[in-house]
Amino acid sequence: MPRTNLVFFHGMGVQDPGYHQAVWDFLVEKHQAIAGSDLRATCTPKAFFYHDIFTELRQAGSLDILRPLIQDAGALKAIEDLQASNAFLYTHVLDVLAWRFHAPTRNRIITKLAAELMPFIQTLPKSPDNNLVVVGHSLGTAVATEVIHYLGTHGVSEFQLIPAVHMLADVAKVLEQPEVPAYRPPTPSLCRPWTQDPEDRAMLLNYFNHRNELDPIPLVDRFRPPEWPKTYHETVFRSWGEQVQPHDLLTYVRAPAVYVKLLRSITQDGATYSAAREQLELQATPPSSPLGAERQAKFEQLATQYEDASTLGDFIQLGRAFSDSNLW
């Protein structure tokens, strides 16, 4: 039975110390129902935090610091509009811009989290039963991408691969750094699946990309890698309801296509968590409650409007449009 460390990278905004607890409880409950054993005996969850670094920047007046750094006129205009509208999104988006444009803050987050992730990677070669699963959500996907790339560039990939990374609402592409493109050919980022070529310095054994079709965040400049090895797995699902937040971490994990794959990575048990099991879970899940006709029409309109959008400015505007239309 593998001993797994399950590491979470949170998304935008200030986070509760137990932000991963609801997801963990859900996984424990599902594992009990499906496999009949206690997940807590073999898996330990660990939540990583970096929001405090953004909070420091925010207290120092982040938009004033960031304004001259934002080398993207569209993004600057979008954030200034957002500030004027006083939307709740403003703080969240500011973190995204700080991540994208403020190099010292970004580097500080990357090095801090790389030093925190490293002990979990160190345990892997000590026994074939040791396992590590990384879960990134929203901005956390971009952070995890950079942290893993950083570890790869420091020689970790020569000796060890990370067994599985799950990206929920992957924004690694729209927020990619010029020097670390998330996957554009010839795929310089090391946060990608290993090709089994001994010279390849990729960091991952398996890359899982999960996307909620109704979530606006991963809509702009979607993460669509070209030819990756078959250890790249993509999941697209729909979850909706009048009270459901489509971008929420728990919304993602509650989708059968996501939690079955997540539990498969954690338990390394492909028999219990097979593709057939995923189908069964999907059938057993109650159908999502439909949107009202008006909201549905609005959603379709926005999704079509931003289908080919690819800039950071579009990304911010889309978030705002969803918020204004009460789709969020």
């Binding site: 090095t111 030093a115 490293m118 160190q122 000590k126 420091h154 000796f159 060890q160």
Partner: peptide, 25 residues
């Protein structure tokens, strides 16, 4: 066979990374 030397290399890497993280701070 491969685990013990890989673990030793990673231990050295971890120390380097800790120093780098502190320097960035």
């Amino acid at each position: 066979i491969t685990g013990p030397p890989a673990a030793q290399f990673l231990e050295a890497k971890a120390k380097e990374l800790q120093v780098l993280a502190r320097r960035w701070e």
